[in-house]
Design a protein around this nucleic acid. Structure first.
Lengths: 214, 214
DNA sequence: GTCTATATGGCGATAGAC
DNA sequence: GTCTATCGCCATATAGAC
């Protein structure tokens, strides 16, 4: 999974110029790759600097510390993911379809999956700089998916005896677990397909003409 | 998830004494904790040495390198897990019950879950010392669970239209994802319960008097 | 079998020139 | 805004005394 609460205010100090913003974006991209490959703990500012073609000091002019850089990466990641899933759609089925869509999209960008799985696992430690982020992320996502199931339930489309909250927990766990397994064996695991199958059991949904996942 | 292929031979050089074996076991325990908390990359030999009350050099007398120590930890972990799940039972339902049992047990030993999730995520990098281990682990576990579902299918107890292989992938993903989510919010997630619910949808099983998971 | 001491190198972050 | 230089710390691993 990969969505989170809208950033309260992606504020930008007044005196910034366009060139600087571009540089910052390039640095965030490089940091994204670095942390995706080696995690936050395993990644280094040196590695980021090399990717972006700058010195470490130059890099630290734009981001005051390694963890500040991680924060920027996570924010950037959320912006992208939020574009893909209509989490607040009044139609619960649209939300689920958005999740399948996201899974299919993720399969085309392994780096995103890598970043998410590595960070979510290492940030279970309470002192990790991304810990609070993921606690928020899970609460937020669980809430949204639960709401989607609740709406389907109200429409009589949730399988009898199913609890929206439990269904949400299960779906999020499934998405997370599929990502790890997929990273090891991409030929065997089809994330979107697996998700679609489970949704078909949980609820009554008409799937599109069937985009054959891949 | 947390099972893997039986170690080919946990061989032990001939000239070892009991005292030494005890020390080694103590070191493995300490390393287990260290890697569970900080991952392999984030953990240090210094940390392990402090936990076990030795110098780093003393520790390296027993394990020639950091990655050799990791190997010992993973082997030790597998031995424990294999005791819990009758992966080769002729009755597929017994396998699934074993998985629920394992989930409930894991919930009582957070360290095990921590170690597994952290390592499985960071070892997706091909150059990680545990990479081969997890590739093997997933292939092995997928195979065993698939076989369990296939047996249930042969007995007409698998839900119509379900594929044993897909079911196996889904179940393993679910177990993995539940562990991460549980580490963040233990009050919200009940791993064994979630697993039991999904199994009840997939197959026709009589659950025990219901160990209320707690 | 365990220690101290040390070699060697990567790390995050800062100071200050340009 | 970017650089070089450097500080101080922690890492893995080895050498050799006890």
């Amino acid at each position: 999974m990969s969505l989170s609460t809208p950033s309260p205010a992606a504020r930008k100090p007044r005196g910034e110029y366009a060139k600087s913003a571009e540089k910052r974006a390039a640095i965030v991209d490089a940091a994204f790759e670095e942390f995706a490959e080696s995690g936050y703990r395993g990644g280094s500012l040196r590695g980021v600097a090399q990717r972006v073609g700058m010195s470490e000091a130059g890099l630290l002019h734009h981001f005051r510390s390694k963890s500040a850089l991680l924060e920027a990466v996570l924010e950037h990641r959320d912006e992208k993911a939020r574009e893909r899933v209509p989490l607040d759609s009044p139609d619960g089925a649209e939300v689920l379809k958005g999740l399948v869509d996201l899974a299919a999209y993720n399969a085309s960008i392994a780096g995103v999956v890598d970043l998410y799985t590595t960070l979510s696992a290492e940030a279970t430690s309470a002192d990790h700089p991304a810990h609070a982020y993921f606690v928020r992320h899970y609460a937020f996502t669980r809430e949204k998916v639960e709401r989607a199931f609740a709406k389907l339930d109200a429409d009589g489309r949730l399988r009898h005896g199913f609890d929206p909250r439990q269904a949400a927990i299960t779906v999020i766990a499934l998405m997370d677990g599929l990502q790890v397994q997929w990273l090891y064996t991409r030929d065997v695991v089809d994330m979107a397909d697996a998700l679609r199958r489970v949704f078909s059991v949980f609820v009554d949904i008409d799937w599109e003409p069937v985009p054959p996942t891949e």
